[in-house]
């Protein structure tokens, strides 16, 4: 009962968003390390992929958990989006940006950047998880990213992710109650570093192939 109340409450929903957000960031961390193998060599990358597929149970559990987390993040996010639209419709004749901060754009576009990331995710999964079984993944990467539009789409996806994270990371900490003058400077720096890190680490891959650097991959 208490848990249902928690889920129904406005703060409870925030906690779901923050917790699932945190887990997704942790997943991204593992993902980014795996992807890091691309930069070493196609062999290393293929090795990583094969190692992963030799543990089907782990992948299955991981995938299901990830699905649940993503569903929670997306569903609660959409509920918040609709509920808040309900409250705030027919607002003011003059619209101004009250919060004069850089990431206020990120804050305002959270639902939209989120939905774009979801779209990206669907394309990404259909491209890789349900990609051709007979082609080695290291080949497949090269093949896909050599296409210009596919690469640009990926870059846009990563940009959306960075934008989403630039508000989301701070917002998550705020929801968890981490807000103290002593650490706010550090947190402020992290709100730039974290999205930037993911942006560079992920976007490097399509760029690597698109720019032709990975021609001999």
């Amino acid at each position: 009962m208490w848990f249902i109340n928690f889920l129904k409450s406005s703060i409870g929903k925030k906690y779901i968003m923050a917790t699932s957000g945190l887990l997704l960031v942790l997943f991204l961390c593992t993902h980014v390390f795996g992807n890091g193998a691309i930069y070493i060599s196609s062999k290393a990358f293929q090795g990583y992929a094969d190692a992963l597929h030799s543990l089907p149970m782990l992948v299955f559990i991981f995938s299901i958990s990830l699905l649940v987390i993503i569903l929670a993040h997306v569903c609660i996010g959409l509920i918040l989006f609709w509920q808040n639209r309900e409250v705030s419709k027919s607002r003011y004749a003059v619209e101004v940006d009250i919060v004069q901060e850089k990431n206020s754009i990120a804050a305002k576009t959270m639902p939209y950047s989120g939905l774009f990331i979801l779209l990206f995710l669907l394309v990404h999964i259909s491209g890789f998880t349900f990609g051709p079984e007979d082609v080695p993944v290291s080949e497949h990467v090269k093949e896909l990213f050599s296409g210009f539009f596919y690469g640009v789409f990926y870059l846009a996806g990563f940009a959306a992710l960075a934008l989403h994270l630039s508000h989301g990371f701070w917002s998550m900490l705020q929801t968890f109650g981490v807000n103290h003058p002593r650490f706010n400077c550090l947190i402020g720096t992290l709100t730039y570093i974290v999205p930037l890190f993911f942006l560079i680490a992920f976007a490097g891959i399509p760029l690597y192939f698109m720019t032709g650097l990975g021609a001999n991959y």
């Binding site: 406005s10 703060i11 929903k13 925030k14 918040l80 509920q83 808040n84 409250v87 705030s88 009250i98 919060v99 004069q100 901060e101 206020s104 804050a107 305002k108 959270m110 508000h167 701070w170 917002s171 705020q174 929801t175 968890f176 109650g177 981490v178 807000n179 103290h180 003058p181």
Partner: peptide
Amino acid sequence: FGNCTNHKACEAVCPKAISIRNIA
């Protein structure tokens, strides 16, 4: 009332400069 999404607009207009640290 709606759900907080950490926009900080409240803090920006508060005539008494109440901090969102309180929300945390």
